[in-house]
Write a protein that binds this DNA or RNA. Structure first.
Lengths: 134, 134
DNA sequence: ATTGACCTTTACGTTAACGTAAGGTACGTT
DNA sequence: AACGTACCTTACGTTAACGTAAAGGTCAAT
């Protein structure tokens, strides 16, 4: 058994992207579909990678950065020569993600404060409306 | 007193961007410096806005989206006509930010698991090295 | 009065990440 | 045999977000 395979349109539908996008990712080495004649056959691994790419993209990383990070994921630790260096690099990525997360958290909290202000203003208006009817 | 003002290079140094970038943001309406002759004078408000823009950019929003979100911040609730609509829009932004945050959290946790695997492998190698010396 | 620092405008150039059009293949169906 | 569907390659086009070069204004210091 060679595992589940997916056509390009299947993945396009699942992740809501165009074929062009996926082909572009292939040309960047982000996915590596097999071929049956001309047609691309995407493996489960390609599907996982695609999901990672799209997540990274939505977080504002460019494709080159995403490629680097993904390559960390499926690397065989027993085969890595510069283990300390690689580990340091990965820890750096973690820190940069944590920084982004705290930025997001700040933004969320500011928007929530803003939300409360508007809600208060809204309640005030409704009260004034009902008072006007008396 | 008209408050603290900043030159373009001051802000460039503080936020590590080029003058071109700030001028570009002005042309998009993201900052609105006053003028003294030709020169731009940035207010504290511009500085805050600039910080928000850069934060948004690092989170993968484009300048148009950032403009919309920033405009929410400094809007006067007592003057807003479509209060419910605006509120709904803001809540939507909050939800999209929360989604991004959970994506980041996922990514962080996956990278941490990866880190632990590499650390284990590293310990294993060191042990084998010392054994080899016996 | 000229140099240097700081700032300006105008306008063409660049890069990433695809969009899109044109034309072709391969295969099952009508 | 013609058609539809799904896929392919090649290659030019587009958009956002600036980069960069050219030419010039203003003011203080030498």
């Amino acid at each position: 058994m060679s595992g589940q395979v997916y056509s390009i349109t299947q993945l396009c539908q699942e992740f809501d992207v165009t074929p062009r996008t996926i082909r572009h990712y292939e040309s960047c080495g982000l996915v590596q579909p097999a071929r049956e004649g001309q047609r691309r056959l995407f493996s489960e691994r390609d599907r996982v990678r695609l999901r990672l790419v799209l997540r990274g993209r939505s977080l504002g990383f460019n494709l080159a950065e995403i490629a680097e990070m993904i390559d960390l994921y499926d690397l065989d630790p027993t085969q890595v020569a510069q283990l300390e260096r690689t580990l340091a690099y990965g820890r750096d990525k973690i820190r940069s993600l944590e920084r982004k997360r705290s930025e997001i958290t700040e933004a969320i909290e500011e928007l929530r404060a803003w939300e409360r202000r508007l809600e208060a203003q809204l309640r005030l208006r409704k009260r004034q409306q009902t008072e006007g009817k008396r």
